[in-house]
Design a binder for these strands. Structure first.
Lengths: 341, 341
DNA sequence: GGTAGTGAAGTTAACGCTAACATCGTCCGT
DNA sequence: ACGGACGATGTTAGCGTTAACTTCACTACC
């Protein structure tokens, strides 16, 4: 009881309180906090001491009211349960905090233009100073761009939007590497289980895969469509197992690759003896599943961190619209082998 | 003159602008926004129209300066790359947005008391009105509690802290179910690969496992320690494979279970014929790995959502300190089977 | 018909901070 | 020794909202 009343009566100290204790004006306190060099060391020490004694913390609402800056960056994301987005989100949050900004998140329940617009609006309303988009669905992207307030800098990760700065891993290259790896093992062609139609990453992977096949003069099989989940990979695998020409499968991510392998195994086919399977992402479990999965490693965290670097640069007047592409890396394990028969 | 008006219209409109256009005072505008019923419908319409025309948005900094509320909840998290935390985070963000609050995130790079304190401070400084802790390390927990400002409501997920409201899945029960499932299959005892020593979830699982074994009068083998990663599970598996009595292994999460299975397989043991393996979490891939993994399903998203419900309730004066426990569910797949001698 | 009561709007004063200007010594060059 | 420049601090005036009054017109009642 006593605790409560004490806590209540003890109002949070404000600049004026600090000033009084230090024997200066509140403006000097403000200066100590904002441009310490402009205050005489002796005075500064006194103020700092008073701040410490009172446990003073500057009120950020008042500060941003007058400066019109919030020291906050906004992150729009869709599903942070997927390994890739989750890792990028982590990288983004860390980098943002390191830079002294707060992180405000808006999440999209559904990939609709409306939801996207709302999310951006919400963040803008919080006066974020910059925006990071982790929402790789192309349809959305368009909505975003329309909803964007021209005055605030934006960076999109893993999604090339017109007129928006973006950072991404070279999906086309990654898919190329996978396809050529498989071709080099003697497979006649490579089948592909792609990601959702509206994800730009999925499209990039399809592009690289098809391009590599065409360059080698191979047949380009019709791709199967998944939704990134192992379950959808399983469904695709069930179809593939009926096609004797499908000796090599490139799944657009590791989860789907797992599903494909499961379907193959359930149907009595062996991996990699009968069918080689490759994933994408290199989730931490990839090396430990059965068989250990050949896949493409993406530096997700770095992508996230890099996006913040670029965003901050843009906020300080750097030019926008640049596109930064980071190369992925093929990791060969045991789910791929030379074609037999 | 024209310049001036253009310049003015370029500036974000404020309440006064809306008021002028609607022919009322700024206070009426404020009322329309805060307590619409107190304004005559006719006037209200006029104001609403003016708001629409000007594209007016209330300045949240000014608002929170005077109300001393930020309409923001803070989330402290450690590693949102792990499936569990990522899912809970998702649930939390969704529920928070649904309730009309903004979400501010602070992430811990390292599980130290210092980092924890800083993270909480950062959020408090942003005047969050409530705090959710997704940081299941016990050591940390203590630091949090100490750093906690007594006046702002806190909910911890997956971590029972003294005097702090918490929501969690019944880890002890889950581990019990696993152990009894294995025992019922005829295994003499169950070996355990636990999670990090400072995670309360890991401790709960150890507790349930040991209790179940003891109740059945079985030997309680010394547990091996992992760090949740498949790699650490692999290391544990390499040790277990040398012990002929280890016919049933309970890994504290699915990733480690995968690592254990890999090590077993690499050493020539078959799963489940020679050794049964169980995980925990039921990651979406669990049903599709080889062999499909028996595990415990946890309603992560619901835990996240529930934590927000409770937090909001507490913010509205509900009593704090309650503990909400949600039961998990055993999912039997193919990585467990009767003991064969 | 006068007065209290009501509902709807307006006025004023914070909220805690920073920008911009004002003040006041002090040091300098000539 | 004097005016100007400079460095350190103080004073004042908002930033855009809401809380707390105040005003005013209109109703209701004895």
């Amino acid at each position: 009881m006593a605790d409560v009343s004490v806590a209540k009566s003890r109002r949070m100290p404000v600049m004026g309180d600090v000033a009084r204790l230090a024997g200066v004006s509140h403006m000097t306190v403000s200066r100590v906090l904002n441009e310490p060099e402009s205050v005489r060391p002796e005075t500064r020490e006194r103020v700092l001491l008073a701040i410490e004694q009172l446990g003073y913390r500057r009120n950020s609402a008042a500060r941003s009211l007058v400066t019109r800056r919030s020291q906050t960056l906004g992150v729009v994301c869709f599903d942070t349960t997927l390994y890739g987005p989750a890792s990028m989100f982590n990288g983004i949050v860390h980098a943002t905090e390191e830079a002294g900004y707060a992180v405000s998140v808006a999440s999209l329940r559904r990939p609709t233009a409306d939801a996207a617009t709302q999310a951006v609006q919400r963040l803008v309303h919080q006066s974020v100073e910059g925006l990071v988009l982790i929402a790789p669905q192309a349809a959305e992207a368009m909505a975003f761009v329309r909803a964007l307030p021209t005055n605030i800098p934006v960076v999109a990760v893993e999604n090339a939007l017109p007129n928006v700065t973006s950072v991404s891993v070279d999906q086309v290259l990654g898919a190329r590497m996978v396809t050529e790896h498989l071709l080099s093992l003697g497979h006649e062609t490579v089948h592909h289980v792609r990601g959702p139609l509206d994800w730009s990453e999925a499209n990039g992977r399809v592009e690289g895969w098809a391009a590599a096949l065409e360059e080698h003069g191979r047949m380009v099989p019709r791709e199967l469509v998944g939704d990134w989940s192992a379950r959808s990979g399983y469904a695709a695998g069930q179809k593939l197992v009926r096609d004797p020409r499908a000796t090599a499968v490139f799944a657009a991510n590791d989860s789907m690759a797992l599903g494909v392998m499961r379907a193959l195994l359930d149907a009595g086919a062996r991996v990699p003896e009968d069918v080689s399977v490759v994933g994408f992402d290199d989730i931490p479990e990839a090396a430990f599943v059965t068989p250990p999965l050949t896949t493409v490693s993406q530096p997700f965290r770095e992508v996230g961190q890099r996006s913040i670097e670029i965003l901050l640069d843009e906020m300080e007047g750097g030019e926008a619209g640049a596109t930064s592409v980071i190369p992925p890396e093929l990791v060969v394990r045991d789910s791929t082998s030379h074609r037999r028969s």
